[in-house]
């Protein structure tokens, strides 16, 4: 293990870009879990990966191509009024097939395909950091507005219809934010790394938190701590980042039976 790599200035920028995403994705994951749509994250990540590679084949940067595919998925889901996880299962299959076919048939696609699967955090540049900060700013603006409405829609499902509220606005706004988050997360942390940040911290926080505010805080804290630990281990041990992040989060999840649950 070469621990001096962890503090190497060369990796400060990638670390910062990933850190911002590691803070935002668990918060999005809490709402996805509340809506029973956590599979959305994996569906959107696959679409983002596929559209990123398709765009690359056409000369479009991944940081533009990936969000476009994920946003298209979110709009399709909103317009189709799909509920539950079926549509996300279809997105996973379509994204997976497209990703592997593009990767198999283009030289650059092959390299990028591996990078998306393994997580290419160390190659994150200023564009990724700016994109992550845009995502964080979007979340800071959108989440306080949509969160109480989404919670009310989930816990009191007749409320919106009974009062003639324009519910599509907040549902679509959140779907778009989740799509953007997953696209950037996939581009920066890798497909499964991004999914793990959306899935594992909320899974733990839902069991342990005494209230909603604590659930949000705990989820974000687990995401950030897991990311920091994975970054250090992967860099010092010269390991691919994505699998290390997933392993660290799963190890944290394995500790859950030892921790206090349900408040």
């Amino acid at each position: 293990m070469n621990w001096s790599m962890v503090v190497d200035p060369m990796f400060h920028l990638p670390f910062a870009a990933g850190l911002v995403v590691a803070l935002v994705l668990p918060l999005l994951g809490v709402l996805l879990r509340l809506r029973d749509e956590w599979l959305a994250a994996l569906g959107l990540a696959h679409l983002a990966g596929a559209s990123g590679l398709v765009g690359l084949a056409g000369g479009v940067p991944v940081v533009v191509g990936a969000p476009l595919g994920a946003l298209a998925g979110a709009v399709l889901k909103g317009l189709g009024r799909f509920r539950g996880n079926t549509v996300y299962g279809l997105m996973i299959l379509a994204g997976w097939a497209a990703t592997l076919l593009v990767a198999a048939n283009t030289a650059l696609g092959s390299v990028m395909g591996h990078a998306l699967v393994e997580g290419q955090l160390y190659f994150a540049g200023p564009v990724h950091l700016v994109s992550a900060l845009v995502l964080a700013a979007g979340a800071a603006v959108v989440l306080p507005w949509v969160m109480p409405r989404l919670i009310r829609a989930r816990l009191f499902p007749g409320h919106e219809a009974a009062n003639g509220l324009p519910a599509w606005r907040w549902h679509l706004a959140f779907d778009a934010l989740a799509a953007l988050g997953m696209a950037l997360g996939t581009g920066i942390l890798g497909l499964m790394g991004a999914f793990a940040l959306v899935f594992v911290p909320p899974w733990m926080a839902f069991r342990m938190a005494p209230n909603w505010r604590a659930c949000l805080g705990l989820s974000a804290a687990i995401g950030v701590a897991g990311y920091g630990l994975a970054f250090a281990i992967a860099l010092a041990g010269d390991q691919p980042f994505g699998p290390v992040l997933v392993a660290v989060l799963l190890a944290a999840g394995a500790l859950m039976p030892l921790l206090p649950g349900k408040g």
Partner: peptide, 28 residues
């Protein structure tokens, strides 16, 4: 007109990280 509606089977999730205070707040 504003309407509040308690369904015959209110939504009770298997995992529900809301305190009673949260629940009332988000119900308005």
């Amino acid at each position: 007109l504003t309407v509040a509606w308690l369904a015959q089977q209110p939504v009770r999730l298997h995992e529900m990280p809301f305190s009673g205070r949260d629940y009332l707040r988000y119900a308005g």
